[in-house]
Amino acid sequence: MEAIEILFTASLWAAAIRIASPLIFGTLGELICERAGVLNLGIEGIMTAGAFSGWLAVYMGADLWFGVAVAAIVGATLGLLHGVLVVPLGLSQHVTGIGVTLLATSLCYYFYRLAFPEVTSPPKIDPFQPWPVPVLSEIPVLGPALFQQTPLTYLAFVMVVLVAWFLERTPLGLAVRTVGENPAAAEAQGINVTWVRIGAVMAGSALMGIGGSFITLSAFNSFFFDMMNGRGWICIALVVFGAWRPGKALLGAVLFGAFDAYQLRLQQLAGAVVPYQFFLMLPFVLSILALIFMSRRVAYPRALMVPYRKGER
């Protein structure tokens, strides 16, 4: 009974939204890359790099928002690397992406050791504080869940609308979508496929960087090794779950956040009887089930993972 009651508590949904926030950024970023036809498996490393660089900037005295900007720039730079390797050079997107993840993660650890050779407990910063939205945060249940979050969470929700608008309503968004569907069609209309794809990968990677920085600047207040803990891979699955649509991707991220928050509470409730690993597993199992259920008949971008070489049929 108690297990059901948890579902109606504001704290569960507040936690769900909090857990979902970095996933929303990451998923939107991956979604932009994939709509342009580029799979970006560098996401796990790019998010780690965002988390580390944003946090390091703030630790060294920068403003929190400046840290977010640093994370975005670092993300975009890694995106540029991935883009140059897979778009004009046409390398395997899988292999390159995993390479970018390994490179970015290792570089973070390397620079962490360089910056803090002799610390035992990780240095802390003052993270973003919750910023209750006036009036709206007074609504029962919904208010505390949605409107007593940190500014970065609000930014995540705004980004969903902006990315959807960008893809569906702007000429550049149309170019991105066409490049991911049929690059030859874009080329025939005078669009430079290479630049649009690289630009999309950079923009998407910048969002991944911001998603990473949420972990160190909003959810926690310091940087640990392995703190990304597979969130990037979850985002890859959420893009498929969301059928490459920003709105559905948001739904997926919140759903995953809810599963995760729920299992944490179930652990406390039934941890004595059921091993806690079972609960840890739950969100992933449910994600796989939802993935199977949701993604059977989706229209994936036709040119996803297909390199484009000018003048070739």
Binding site: T178, E181, A184, A185, I191, R302
Partner: peptide, 14 residues
């Protein structure tokens, strides 16, 4: 050279 999943309008306006 048409993107099949896009509308006629999208293909022409691009």
């Amino acid at each position: 050279t048409l993107a099949e999943n896009l509308t006629v309008l999208d293909n022409i306006v691009l």
